[in-house]
Nucleic acid binder design. Sequence first.
DNA 1: GTGAAAGCGCTAACAT
DNA 2: ATGTTAGCGCTTTCAC
Lengths: 352, 352
Amino acid sequence: MHEGNKVTINDVAKAAGVSKGTVDRVLHDRGEVSARSKEKILKVIDELGYKPNFYASILASKKNFHISCIIPEFCNGEFWELTQRGIDQGTEYAGRFGISLSAMMYDQYDLDSFQHTCSEVLASDPSGVVIAPMFRNETLKFAKELSDRHIPYVYIDSKLEDDGYLAYYGMPMYQSGYLCADILTDGRDVGKIHIIRIARDKRGLSDPTITRRTGFIDYISEHYPECRIENTFIDPKNKEARYAVLDEMFASDTDPGKYIVMCNSRVHFVADYLRDRNIRTCRVIGFDVLDRNLAALRDGFVQALIAQHSDRQAAAAITALTDYLILHEAPAKKDNYTQMDILNRYNCDYYI
Amino acid sequence: MHEGNKVTINDVAKAAGVSKGTVDRVLHDRGEVSARSKEKILKVIDELGYKPNFYASILASKKNFHISCIIPEFCNGEFWELTQRGIDQGTEYAGRFGISLSAMMYDQYDLDSFQHTCSEVLASDPSGVVIAPMFRNETLKFAKELSDRHIPYVYIDSKLEDDGYLAYYGMPMYQSGYLCADILTDGRDVGKIHIIRIARDKRGLSDPTITRRTGFIDYISEHYPECRIENTFIDPKNKEARYAVLDEMFASDTDPGKYIVMCNSRVHFVADYLRDRNIRTCRVIGFDVLDRNLAALRDGFVQALIAQHSDRQAAAAITALTDYLILHEAPAKKDNYTQMDILNRYNCDYYI
DNA sequence: GTGAAAGCGCTAACAT
DNA sequence: ATGTTAGCGCTTTCAC
């Protein structure tokens, strides 16, 4: 981009026998140029291998790009905190190119909140959007609107079957469940598995972890057809109730060496219970690197965590959008499935 | 950097009652400024929160930064190929800031070659250096020379006890051995372990994997004090000899369920042997994501691979150097130990 | 439709 | 020791 590429807009103008103003017009497709000139200029650009110098471009431009990131709101220590970190990194990167960022949060359990956030974003007329979707239909509607307005958007975490997105960065959910089952069982003689799930009160919500659970169950039925799977539902907001349910589970199943799994980021609920009851005989696997999960991993109440760098996903999304806005370059791959990291007590300290 | 920061060098000049030329002089510390002015200007810069606009800076500057990367030469499919990929990415990044890159290779088994490469790099007077060191003393000498010339340098892969480097990006070697032992044994009843090693003919070479082997052995003696460890040396260049040695190993140890480990990237040698002899009863762990290792992982001749993103290490090194040259910002952390990735057949396809 | 010209914020050579 | 000035390559009025 720098080296031999000393071809400037002036060279192009000269070679095409026009002024650089005209060249700039065709460069940015803003019309008011005769077909003849345009053709000629395009030809010269190609011949000379002209590439615009985007420092000069940004310097001279008064344009102000702005990217909106739409993600669920969160408390400290929750899953989306890591995504926020990635957004911060992305902000740093985009800032270098004069692009500003704003994170717009919504209540992931409240459809109205999501809709409200979306229309706010639309109203602000962003140059690009990064979105972590939780509501299928509303997201599709929103995506359609963005497409119509020619606003590029990138999915993170999960994506929909719509086709207009610029890129997607997330974990392969089905495979993560499959992997999880392999790590949980790992050649052992497993007769029964407990899946702990979150009791969701709201309906109409697309739960992104069902695909993961499907992967998990498929692995088990392929490798352990005899194995029984039992679902237990816990309430994230009520410790008493949670402990009661788990106590019951432990009472009804007399095997001390239980196999326990959670398909979302809340395995710390199980770990806390085990810690309080001082039960160290179970094999427990969960997902994501929340602080409380890491603590449980170090303490030995969780044996392994399957993690994704959701910070990098967010940062990559922003980078992709930035490059698209500045360089007009679409990312190399549209669907980017990020790696699944297996963490245990011996490698978790070097994560992040 | 962009938004509210409309403070320009002109504002600073005005506020300090000098011309922008003088401000520029103190900005770049190139002297010829009275102590009084300098002090005043620095004060104003601080008060106004002035941050240089580096587009303008790069645009106007005729300076040509150049970074040299010194790494071992390699064949396709070897460990350093991944590092090269990272260098390519870094080249892309640095190129955006008008910084050119060149990769300088040396024969990692030949001291002369290393010295020769180093002096070539020195002669080219680079703005910064990335180096993957293999020869201790020579590297220290080289590092000293770079320090003297005020050329910033970054270590990748491994580092030395010298203190003048800008940053280091690599895997925690001792911990990786420790982790490896945990994955190999993983609660199993292990009585004997075979460490396969490369017979090195040259001496005077610092073998970066001894630290890893130490970690491995420490874990075993802590967790399996009774366990015996047997070293077997194979010749990387002679298949006949290799097979003979391994045949002998298998003949002398009658247990079919052997535990086998290699502490470098060449576990594919073992896998190929097992594949040819159709032995599927061993548990084999190795390091790094060479294509041949991945193939063995998928085929089931290797159970797990511990990997590092050496591409990201190289890219991060270049990014750090770039930011240092352009922004005069040292990286947040000097020593950056990258994460250790555990790969098995179910997550390896999403790696890289 | 097209050209001329005034910057964008900074660097560096040249005056003084 | 300090000020002046001519660009760097591009964008964007504003004439014509």
